[in-house]
Design a protein around this nucleic acid. Structure first.
Length: 118
RNA sequence: AAUGCAAAUGGUCUUAUCGCUGUGUCUUGCGCAGGCAAGGCAGAGAGGAAAGUCUGGGCAACAUAGAGCAAUCUACUUCCUAACGGGAAGGCGUGCAUUGGGCGACUGAGGCACGACAGACAGCGCAACAGAAAAUAUACCGCUAUCUGUACUCGCCUCUCUCUAUUUUUGGAGAAGGGUUGGGGAGAGGUAGUAAGGGUGAAAUGGUGUGGUAAAAGCACACCGCGCUUUGGGCAACCAAAGUGGCAUGGCAAACCUUAGAUGUUGCAAGACCAAAUAUGCCUACAUUGCCCCGAAAGAGGCAUAAGCGUGGCUCGCGUGAGUAGGCGGGUAGGUCGCUACAGUGUGUGCGUGAGCAUACACGCAGAUAAAUGAUAAGAACACUCCAAAAGUGGACAGAACCCGGCUUAUAAGUUUGCAUUUUUU
RNA sequence: UGUGCUGUAGUCCAAUGGUAGGACGCUUGAAUUUGGCUCAGGAGAUGAAUGUUCGAUUCAUUCCAGCACAA
């Protein structure tokens, strides 16, 4: 059962370090399931630190900043509620689709992707 | 009334749960401390354009005696403003439709819309094609007068031939040829007068009417338009009236240019501060095996390996192997400040035609940094499904990134105004 | 976020304000047994809108698209 503490999304759960992002994209593994593409990197040494996440929506697919913000906020909300499905060091969630998808279907797809990683 | 177009206005609200970012406050933990972390409570959290980056400033760093040139920008007038290429009011012009005056050229009135609206007798350029001619006022065609006078023609003179009348001289008629300083004269040429006409072009050297003339022409007159002068009105742009000039030198300056005015450069990735790891420089202290070279010394460089360390169960082997510690300096990753309290917002009053200005009271209203404003649920208002109810569906353009003033562009429903069309009634 | 630059046929480039041109490509025909080469034709464009001008690829303004630079 999820407690309130499990559904947070604080600063230390976001991947902000530039060099870590570069290594993630160069050396990390990836899984594809429409409309997502996930890049991830497993722990070198097991630790209790939280998983760090990047969420990305391409400017080529969505020209308007409003649309990009909306999708990123939905993805962040989904990750927040389902983050116990992942236990990796770094994770990048890239949104590949060219059109907006509503919240509930996104949620279903996201659960499917998370099973693929494990 | 409906529909369409254009402009202005407008830019939904409330509650709950979970979550995110700041602020204030309290508690706990860590730390000598500055503070850091976690949690509780309170309260806040995208726009009218946040957009385009077209402009004007603030702010910051650098530069800077003063002046000039160059470059770029602006351009009716007067105001507003911190400033502006923005805005207000006024002037003038253009277009549209309406309605008047005049034979006509043309012109009056109010309405709506638009205007980068200084200067083209300072200079220097440009105008394809067409057209006689494209900027100089003339050439060309044409028109008129006059002169020359060819072909031709009408006359006159002379000679020859034929016919005819007559005795002859001679007369008459006809034909052909020659002459002519007679008249007319197509076409042609010269001189003079003209610019009415030339219909092409985007643009053609004032226009309409009358007189006038050989033909014409502002040549003259009347009117219209235009220029100049004076007077009056207006802060000014400019306007009105009177007089006068016979028209006196078009267009393009979003061609160069002239005149007047303005502009130092770069932009918060500006700039200021703190500062790990690694490397290097300097200083201090301690340590420093051997050999070679340089040196007076301090010391500097090279070669070798002992101890030690790594690999490995151990030995050999291989790699490493002369410095260590502390401090200072610039400074990278990263962080902090700059950063949101002011040309601030709302309401009222006064002044001003207006843009605005003054003043009183109240309010505190985002501050992120791979970048917060989301998700779910319920309800209200609005719109649509011809009307009502129920039920269902729907929400335009669009996301702060140092901050303000403008401009431009995008924009659903509703509301207001204007225009057009259709229908109905009077 | 800021600062600059560029838009011409399918592609690469030209063009003093005066009929938008060239090369390659495409296409039609000729020639060839057929294809290529060759020869003769043809189609095809100024990013969009508004303005200045008699007349805009060119001048001006506003949009649209693309590119570059600045940690």
């Amino acid at each position: 059962m999820k407690t309130q503490k499990d559904c947070t999304f604080r600063k230390n759960e976001r991947l902000c370090h530039k060099q870590s992002i570069e290594t993630l994209f160069k050396k990390g593994d990836h899984v594809f399931l429409y409309p997502f593409k996930l890049m991830f990197k497993h722990w070198d040494i097991p630790s209790n630190l939280p998983t760090q996440v990047v969420i990305s929506v391409s400017k080529r697919s969505f020209k308007l900043a409003t649309d990009r913000n909306l999708i990123k906020r939905r993805l962040r909300e989904i990750y927040r509620t389902h983050k116990d499905l992942f236990s990796v060091e770094h994770l990048a969630i890239i949104y590949v689709a060219k059109e907006k998808i509503d919240y509930n279907t996104l949620q279903k797809k996201f659960v499917q992707v998370s099973k693929k990683i494990q």
